[in-house]
Nucleic acid binder design. Structure first.
Length: 770
DNA sequence: GGGCAGTACTG
DNA sequence: CAGTAC
DNA sequence: GCCC
């Protein structure tokens, strides 16, 4: 969540110096980029030390030891990973990463003016390389097994054939994270052996037992009768994707995860009475009830409408997920088939602006609807469009003006870019790379200024990224979802002239650079920044001396550098430890959980989000006395150095109170192996969360922001409402979606339960980079 | 022309 | 209430 | 910015 901002700020700062020094800044870029990537790539298990059971402990089990030539790899657990992979089919574009070129300069409210074609920006380093496969998230609870998927390297010796396996380039590893179980599950047959190899090259893991599989690949010619006995042995088989051997082949061809429900892939593998999907009846009453409401509510809302059309899902979807994550504790075993897309993915797309959906969320009721639809389209189309936009795209297609611009090279896994954090992942080798690059600069420019516009740009970028052909004309561009007249024109301009005048103008303007600088000060938004710029202030010093600043802004300026610096993971832990220690003296039963990007596994964070909770509490109020003491104590210790926002006695109406401020790691807590100590001010947020709201708060404070918005949007669509306190139903919304009533609390305590109720597959924190 | 997540704190 | 932050 |  905070990462972007900070990153930007940081980068900005760096650039700033550069610029100042040499008047022509356009590097610094690199650094920032690097930093950004750096910070995003990791993801160790982020659980905080004091974590509650929730976060999965993930010990790395040696995992794969087996794996010999003809033996599938031992299941690397990672169960979820596969899910995620599928689930996250969205690409994250990470905004900040690119701050660079446009970076500093930008944010021009007024473009058009002089033009100084500044370079188009540095060139990003090969994004992909920066994320080693091992680093990718895919592990999950229990064993993390590096799922190195097929990567032989992982498990040491052994594995002959496997060792020889050559993974295809990342962008072709459409099966990364998926676990295939074949029937028969051996490579005795030459054809099958080849298929298995192919699948593994594309990232799949060949597992030896049905149980650990996400996909069951049935030899051509076998029928349900033939595989029935196999399936029965595993109760979770109903959740797996069961397809014939043509499926992985086609996916490979199209480099995308196709809808496994297409008739040609399941022919003879299902029986009429074989419920492919769990029945909704298994849902908790509450969920069901809300479901029903939905139908109606959905129609009342406009927002939902758009989504509703997309996937023809209905109640059945609610059922699906439930089975997976049944109880919070239940580890992975129950994770559903990876291919069952979850709606959340769609929303993530929607929210961040893209899509990548195949025909649809498979695995659910679409058995029928989606299915038939999918089969109608020829596969090529399905494949390529798969990642397109949800509803919009559909609509277009229906109206016939949708074109097929080739299949995206970026497969669903590219969506994981979000997890990698690099914005330009996949951009490099994309035919539209140049266009994307410039549009990204526009995004950077508009950041803070116009969030909506920004979102539109991002969406366009995603759409472009998914094309395998270069989009050169406005007409072509217009056919892509999320690209309208304005963007189409820009795209054409870029394609034709290799540059975007509007952007160049903007970047040149000093006002933009200044504006950008001001925007990086904590407590300064577009409004204030604009005022200052128009008042003639040009530097932070100007502000300090002449402008009237709020308390927070003053702090923001005085500690501009510190506050815009990333916080290494170890320091986050060290800071938390200091707090825990102090807290222990006040109330040992209070628990702390580090949220934010730390919880998502980031190796550096923009700030520290510390969730404070305690068993038996029902309201943040219950924790207030504790927090007050804690703050007093830490302030006295010199640990807390400033208060930016706290709970005001009056404002707080029984809700989540929080405390935002700054802190500094004391030298005594500074690890000797980290070099020389230097006190750096860090942003810290202390959040009071009663046990009853713990789950909802955890979701919120874990983020990332796109993820949060997506899941909220999804909730909203279902007539539910999700906020940091809980998931509510029967929310009455007025005209403009104004909430009239809070609705009844469905769940607030259990993070997983909330996912379930929303019909969303569980995602580990590290899988929430969108 | 409204919506694009939904809320808390500041001044 | 607008602005800002999360 | 785009979409409804």
């Amino acid at each position: 969540m905070e990462e972007r901002e900070l990153a930007d700020k940081i980068a900005y700062f760096k650039r700033l110096s550069t610029i100042q020094a040499e008047e022509n800044g356009d590097d610094a870029y690199d650094e920032e980029e690097k930093a950004h990537r750096e910070r995003c790539k990791t993801f160790h298990n982020a659980t905080s030390t004091s974590n509650r059971a929730k976060s999965p402990a993930r010990s790395v089990t040696g995992s794969q030891k087996a794996g010999t030539a003809s033996q599938p790899l031992p299941h690397p657990d990672g169960s979820q990973s596969s899910d995620d992979l599928e689930i996250i089919k969205v690409t994250p574009l990470n905004p900040s990463s690119r701050l660079g070129a446009a970076g500093i300069a930008d944010k021009t409210p007024n473009f058009d003016e002089e033009i100084v074609p500044e370079s188009a920006g540095p060139d990003p380093k090969p994004a992909h390389s920066f994320l080693h496969p091992l680093l990718r998230p895919r592990m999950t609870r229990q064993t993390s097994s590096l799922t190195l998927d097929n990567s032989p390297s992982t498990s040491t010796a052994k594995r002959k054939k496997q060792a020889r396996l050559k993974l295809l380039p990342e962008n072709q590893q459409v099966f990364r994270g998926l676990r295939f179980y074949y029937i028969p599950n051996d490579d005795a047959n030459g054809v099958r052996a080849a298929q298995i190899t192919k699948a593994r090259e594309r990232g799949a893991t060949w597992v030896r037992t049905l149980k650990e599989a996400t996909h069951v690949i049935v030899d051509i010619g076998l029928t349900y009768q033939d595989i029935k006995s196999d399936l029965i042995s595993d109760s979770s088989s109903a959740e797996k994707v069961i397809v014939n051997a043509n499926y992985p082949i086609d996916c490979g061809i199209h480099r995308v995860i196709l809808d496994p429900n297409q008739e040609k892939y399941v022919r003879n593998l299902r029986v009429a009475d074989t419920p492919p999907v769990p029945s909704p009846s298994s849902l908790p009453a509450s969920a069901q009830a809300s479901n029903n409401l939905l139908e109606i509510k959905g129609k009342q809302h406009k927002r939902p409408r758009k989504d509703q059309e997309s996937p023809p899902r209905t109640q059945s979807d609610y059922g699906e997920p439930l089975q997976n994550n049944t109880q919070s504790l239940a580890p992975v075993t129950t994770i559903a088939a990876a291919s069952v897309d979850d709606e959340l993915s769609q929303y993530i797309s929607l929210v961040q602006g893209n899509s990548l959906y195949l025909e649809m969320p498979l695995g659910e009721e679409e058995e029928d609807s989606a299915h038939s639809e999918a089969t109608q389209d020829d596969e090529a189309e399905t494949g390529s469009e798969s990642s397109e936009d949800e509803s919009s795209r559909k609509k277009k297609r229906k109206t016939g003006d949708k074109i097929q611009l080739g299949q995206e090279d970026t497969t669903w896994q590219d969506n994981f870019a979000c997890m990698k954090g690099g914005t330009r992942e996949g951009t490099v080798d994309n035919p539209n790379a140049a266009t994307i690059e410039l549009l990204q600069s526009m995004v950077d420019m508009y950041e803070h200024q116009d969030a909506w516009r920004c979102k539109s740009y991002r969406r366009a970028i995603t759409a472009l990224r998914q094309q395998t052909r270069k989009i050169t004309t406005a007409k072509e561009a217009m056919k892509l979802p999320g690209i309208g007249k304005s963007l189409a024109a820009k795209i054409e301009e870029i394609a034709a002239e290799g540059r975007l005048r509007k952007l160049e103008h903007a970047q040149q303007r000093p006002e933009n650079k200044i504006l950008n600088l001001f925007l990086k000060v904590y407590g300064v938004g577009i409004s204030q920044a604009n005022k200052w710029v128009s008042q003639g202030y040009r530097t932070l010093e100007d502000l300090q001396e002449k402008a009237k600043l709020s308390t927070n802004q003053r702090i923001g300026i005085e500690h501009f550098e510190d506050l815009n610096e990333r916080i290494p993971r170890w320091e986050v832990e060290a800071l938390a430890a200091v707090i825990r220690e102090a807290a222990g003296c006040i109330d040992a039963s209070v628990e702390f959980i580090i949220g934010g990007s730390y919880r998502r596994g980031s190796d550096s964070s923009g700030d520290i989000d510390l969730i404070i909770t305690k068993k038996g509490t029902r309201s943040p109020q219950d924790l207030l006395p504790f927090l007050e003491k804690l703050i007093k104590r830490l302030t006295n210790d010199g640990f807390l150095t400033a208060a930016l926002a706290s709970f005001s006695e009056n404002t707080n109406k029984g809700h989540g109170s929080k405390w935002h401020g700054c802190c500094v790691l004391p030298e005594t807590a500074f690890p000797k192996d980290k070099g020389k100590y230097r006190p750096i001010w860090r942003r810290i947020d202390l959040l009071l969360v009663p046990e009853t709201e713990f789950g909802a708060a955890l979701i919120y404070f874990t983020g990332n922001d796109i993820f949060n918005r997506s899941i909220r949007l999804l909730a909203s669509k279902k007539g539910l409402r999700l906020n940091q306190r809980g998931l509510f139903k029967d929310v009455l919304r007025g005209k403009k979606g104004v909430t009239y009533t809070e609705g009844d609390l469905l769940e607030g305590r259990d993070e997983k339960r909330i996912f379930e109720l929303l019909g969303v597959k569980w995602r580990e924190p590290h899988e929430r980079w969108c």
